[in-house]
C-alpha cells in the first residue's frame, strides 16, 4: 500500500513545472458563451473590462502532470475536480507564467478500496510577477488492491 506520509514529505510544495500561456480572447469568450455566461466582461471581447472566465483558467495545463520522479501508483486515474481562485482579472493576450506544485496528497477509503487524491496547484503570474489567479486540479487514483 502506498505510504501517503512518505509521498507528502517528498513531494509537497516543490515546484515541478513552469509553463507559459497566452489566453486568446475569442477562445475565452467562446468558452463563456458555451457555458451560458451572459455578462459582457466575459463574453464581449470589445468590453473594456473583458477578462478570462474561470473555466478557461481551469483548462490551463502544466507541461507535466506530476513531478518527474513521482512513483507510479497504478490504478485508474480520474479527473476529480477543479478549483479557481481569482485574485486579479486575467486579461487575454498577456504573457502568463504558471508555476505548479503538488499542494496536497491524501487518501480516502471506502467499500471499493482506497482512493488517492493528488491536488496540483498552478499559480498564474503576469510578466511583472504579479499573482493573478490560482487553479487546483484534483486527480483521483483508485488504488489497486495489490498495491
Amino acid at each position: 500500500m502506498t505510504d501517503i506520509d512518505d509521498l507528502r514529505s517528498k513531494f509537497l510544495d516543490l515546484e515541478f513545472d513552469r509553463t507559459g500561456f497566452v489566453i486568446d480572447a475569442e477562445q475565452s469568450a467562446k468558452v463563456a458563451k458555451a457555458s451560458g455566461e451572459t455578462r459582457a466582461e466575459f463574453t464581449d471581447t470589445t468590453d473594456p473590462n473583458f477578462e478570462a472566465c474561470a473555466p478557461i483558467l481551469a483548462s490551463l495545463a502544466s507541461g507535466r502532470r506530476l513531478p518527474i520522479d513521482f512513483p507510479t501508483l497504478g490504478g485508474i486515474s480520474m479527473d476529480g475536480g477543479k478549483a479557481v481562485a481569482c485574485i486579479k482579472p486575467v486579461r487575454p493576450g498577456i504573457k502568463l507564467t504558471g508555476k505548479t506544485h503538488l499542494h496536497d496528497i491524501y487518501a480516502k477509503s471506502g467499500r471499493s478500496g482506497r482512493m488517492i487524491f493528488l491536488v496540483s496547484r498552478m499559480q498564474l503570474y503576469d510578466d511583472c510577477g504579479e499573482h493573478l489567479a490560482t487553479t487546483d486540479s484534483r486527480q483521483v487514483i483508485r488504488e489497486r488492491p495489490d498495491k
Binding site: V31, A32, A34, S35, G36, E37, T38, R39, F42, C53, A54, P55, A58, S59, M78, D79, G80, G81, K82, A83, V84, A85, C86, D136, R138
Partner: peptide, 27 residues
C-alpha cells in the same frame, strides 16, 4: 470544467455586480 462554467454563469446572473473570488467543483 463546463460544469464549472454553468455554475459561474448562474452566479453571475444572480449577482450581476458580484465577483467570484473562489470556486471549487468536485466531479
Amino acid at each position: 470544467i463546463m460544469g464549472m462554467g454553468f455554475l459561474t454563469s448562474m452566479i453571475h446572473r444572480w449577482a450581476p455586480q458580484g465577483k467570484i473570488k473562489f470556486i471549487d467543483t468536485v466531479f
